[in-house]
Simulated assay, not measured.
Amino acid sequence: MTQSRRMLVLRAVVEDYIRSQEPVGSTTLARDHDLGVSSATIRNDMAALEDEGYLIQPHTSAGRVPTEKGYRYFVDRLATVVPLSEAQRRGINSFLSGSASLEDTLQRAARLLAQITGQVAVVASPSLAKSTLRHVEIVPVSMTTLLAVVITDTGRVAQHLLVIGSLPETATLSAFSSAVNAQCGALPLSKAADAVRAMAADPRWRAIAPLVDALARAFDAMADDERTSELYMAGTSRLAHQRTVADLAPLFDALEEQVVLMKLMSSLSEEAQADGVSVAIGSETHTPGLMHASVVTSGYGHTGAARPSGESGADAGPAAQAGGDPVAFVGSIGPTHMDYANTMAAVRAVARYLTSFLAHDEDGPRS
């Protein structure tokens, strides 16, 4: 019995179980797969795979189903993420290109991914902590309060109230805003805060020291706030058709815990391999409600390096092409018997679109 053939048997079991969701027997494998051996030999291979923890036999007389370890072996040996067809990619571009804003694009992306996979789709908006400053506008709202409207390179718009002692003169406020944009443009918000603090030493801004300090603290607060990303979710109603009632409660609880979900999926997207897609199966999620689920995630956008110029570098993932860490993630949550190849391809395709969208958004209007 060769190890390589045994693993071909394992792959066949996983593929058949994903397709049928019924325990797989040796006779079926011998009939439907060109394994070159008898059903009795396949049966021996399956028994060995069960001993090694790759398969389990739910009932004595039934076939076998993959374990978490079996799925992990299968996913790790999907040599590459097979790209979607040209028609599928055009469909994604067509559906998403009608978006009016970043928020609309992310909502559409979640709905589309849920539709393609038949699973729960989760798309995070770009984190302010990973964004750089494009422009800040400071607007008076009362005699002691100003509103800082911050626009980032990822298209996020954040607002922060600045409470000060008295309102600066219009000319001074305008000059200060221009100076901040000139010195802080393209800086991460944390570094922009440091740059604004350094401006306090400039004699021109000595009279508005409270404003300088308030703006620096506002940039710090935005950079430190882990909850500034929003989650766009779609497809939760599909769960009821795939899970038993007993499984639904903890799964819905897990989906409600958005901070936990964001940390899990952000971490996965940052650990993604060269193909840009990362998979956590069952207990690998370290999330009680996801013990019987799998999570497929890819980062999109980037921090630091130059933007991608299009579809070049097809073998690289969205963040790998762009350089730097992803600014946010897109992912799919489904049963452990999900169609991994299709889900991984769909997640990567949507992530590539969002990376391109952010690049075009920075460079100007999309064509």
Rank of each mutant, 00 (worst) to 15 (best):
S269C: 08
G323P: 13
V260D: 09
L146C: 05
M222A: 05
E169I: 04
P188C: 06
Q273I: 08
D194R: 07
L102Y: 09
D363K: 15
M291E: 11
A124S: 15
P308C: 04
A62M: 12
V123D: 01
V122F: 01
A216M: 07
G53P: 11
S38K: 02
Q21Y: 08
A305Q: 13
R64I: 10
L96F: 09
L10Y: 00
D315I: 08
V81Q: 06
M291T: 13
L55S: 02
G70V: 10
E103Y: 03
A186I: 07
A110I: 11
A359H: 05
L251Y: 03
T152M: 00
H360S: 14
A62E: 15
G364M: 02
V279G: 00
I333R: 03
A186G: 11
H59K: 15
S237M: 12
Q107G: 14
F176Q: 04
L106D: 02
S309Q: 15
D51K: 13
T117Y: 07
H33D: 10
F95D: 14
S283A: 14
A195Q: 12
G304Q: 05
D153T: 14
I42G: 04
G70W: 03
G334P: 03
S278W: 01
L102F: 05
S309Y: 15
I18K: 10
Y232W: 09
A306Y: 13
L248N: 00
R89P: 02
I56S: 13
V157M: 08
A186R: 14
N181F: 06
V14W: 04
R348A: 04
M265N: 10
Q21W: 05
A100P: 10
S312V: 06
V347L: 08
H33Q: 12
R206Q: 13
D275A: 11
D153F: 04
P168C: 10
G313P: 03
G91V: 01
A201Y: 00
H135P: 06
I281L: 13
R108Y: 00
I138T: 11
V13L: 12
R77S: 14
L248A: 00
F74M: 08
A345I: 03
R111P: 03
E270A: 11
S174V: 06
I138Y: 09
A195G: 07
S39I: 03
V163L: 11
E22P: 06
P308Y: 02
V259S: 08
Q258C: 04
K130E: 10
Y232D: 04
A110F: 07
I208E: 04
R31L: 12
K263S: 11
S190C: 09
L146Y: 05
E103T: 11
I138C: 07
I18S: 10
